[in-house]
Design a protein around this nucleic acid. Sequence first.
DNA 1: AGTTTGCGCAACCGATAGGTTGCACGTATA
DNA 2: TATACGTGCAACCTATCGGTTGCGCAAACT
Lengths: 105, 105
Amino acid sequence: MKQDIFQAIADPTRRAILTLIAVQALTPNAMAEKFDMTRQAVSKHIKVLHECELIKPVHSGREIYYHFNAKKMQEFDHWLAQFRQNWETQFNQLDQLLTTIKEQK
Amino acid sequence: MKQDIFQAIADPTRRAILTLIAVQALTPNAMAEKFDMTRQAVSKHIKVLHECELIKPVHSGREIYYHFNAKKMQEFDHWLAQFRQNWETQFNQLDQLLTTIKEQK
DNA sequence: AGTTTGCGCAACCGATAGGTTGCACGTATA
DNA sequence: TATACGTGCAACCTATCGGTTGCGCAAACT
């Protein structure tokens, strides 16, 4: 099944994997050592991350190094963009409030 | 139960609610009209969004207008920051590649 | 060639997510 | 005050999620 990045990011283990991968590509076994769960459990998370293309496999003999796909992560950034203006506005309103309070003193 | 924001945005309906709310505060009934599901289903999504403080209720008589909480939404931005440098690097590498190709011509 | 190692896939299982219906309660309206 | 309206909460049901164990296969080692 095709996964979407929002669902992929929802799981804390998968977020931890992404954080690790972003620094250095790792094999499934190397990841499993970092977490308190079986390799197969980690492998399932890898599958989800791979299906939505947040990570890319690079084969090296019988080992597979999974690399972080920054480009895909940007999709999340783009989604966030629709709200960015929103919170900038809210901060401007806060600035205005603070200014008003200052003027009242 | 305390929800976390990543799990909250994993659901497409909740993302749609946030998009609506970002433009204008709405009541649960008003939201339910936008989606093909019962008011109670929407209400459950509202509960999740409220528990992780992505939305704020403002009571007005017997109606409740839910407002968008931009400040909370920024937490995503902060989480993304750890990867931002990562994809900038990746783009620099792409630039280098393109330059190399150009030089080869 | 036989054994070990790294990996993915399938079957299974308990917990939870997301939907439904029904109900209770406070607020507006007649 | 009686009635209608807007909302939240609880019970229930099915599908999916995240974990497990067991297996098969290809690559590396001896």
